[in-house]
Nucleic acid binder design. Structure first.
Lengths: 144, 144
DNA sequence: GATAAAACATGATATAAGTCATATTTAGGA
DNA sequence: TCCTAAATATGACTTATATCATGTTTTATC
């Protein structure tokens, strides 16, 4: 469904949503252990996310990554799009150029409603929403 | 969503469903042009599909690939599982080992209903069903 | 049987995804 | 102002996916 990169990114963002803020920054070094993702790889992802304002960062001693209020408004789908690109979620299941509502491929009708429903859920759910679910124990994050 | 390999396989099977039978076999050489897939790559996929009884084949002159009645009963999901493996469709969105109904990850509740609906559609739809949709012009197959 | 036409099997290459390593820049604190 | 701790930038390496090429086996036809 998603690539490893997206999954790592989501895990990282969720961890930051729960455990960081402007006054409590988290270093890659620590984060990578908590969420079980290779350090150097996570660095790259976080930099990518920082460039796209999904996470905030500051350099130097006492530096690290954290989420501010604006960061919390990003949706799950935003993050996936940044890391994986839009193609996977936007193109037809068979990647047929000419597939559309008017001239649907055989899989189109079959899955379009459930698929759209799923993508809309991901588009509407913000990082903040997810972190509230976690705080209220409506969801869990076993980070292995 | 699916890999190229799966998409190619589905396109090939659908083409065979529409244009082949025991008395009208189709050679890779021809098939690859019709569905716009590299020949050598398609060969490999077809052999894999033949081994798993998704398609039928016969060697030698007048040989080629075709679908018999049994082949037509395969589901879309069967084919995807054969080519891509089961992991993609069966594991949690974040690939968390311990994610389950009882201890759902934050994305689990969010998408599980629509995701299951989608996967069930793919599981229940056979190649024969799809080919009937095409024959009745309920769907189209622009093979580019 | 000999020939040729097809699938089958295997392996080599290319490209993309994932991982690792190292040097550079920035900023806090002595 | 200098040192050190952090992110940042860049590039090399590895593994998996996708693609290509070549030889082997089977079988219909003459």
């Amino acid at each position: 469904m998603f690539t490893n990169s997206s999954k790592y990114a989501l895990k990282a963002v969720l961890y930051l949503a729960l455990h960081s803020d402007e006054n409590k920054k988290i270093m890659v070094k620590d984060l990578c252990e908590r969420i079980n993702v290779p350090k150097a790889y996570l660095s790259k992802l976080l930099q990518d996310l920082a460039r796209h304002e999904v996470v905030s960062s500051s350099k130097g001693p006492k530096g690290g990554f954290y989420l501010n209020e604006q960061n919390l408004t990003m949706s799950v789908l935003d993050i996936v799009h940044i890391i994986d690109g839009r193609k996977k979620t936007e193109s037809c299941l068979l990647s047929l150029e000419d597939c559309s509502r008017h001239k649907p491929c055989p899989l189109h009708n079959l899955v379009s409603s459930s698929r759209n429903e799923m993508l809309n859920s991901l588009k509407d759910k913000t990082v903040k929403d997810l972190s509230l679910d976690l705080k209220h124990k409506k969801a869990f994050l076993p980070l292995a």
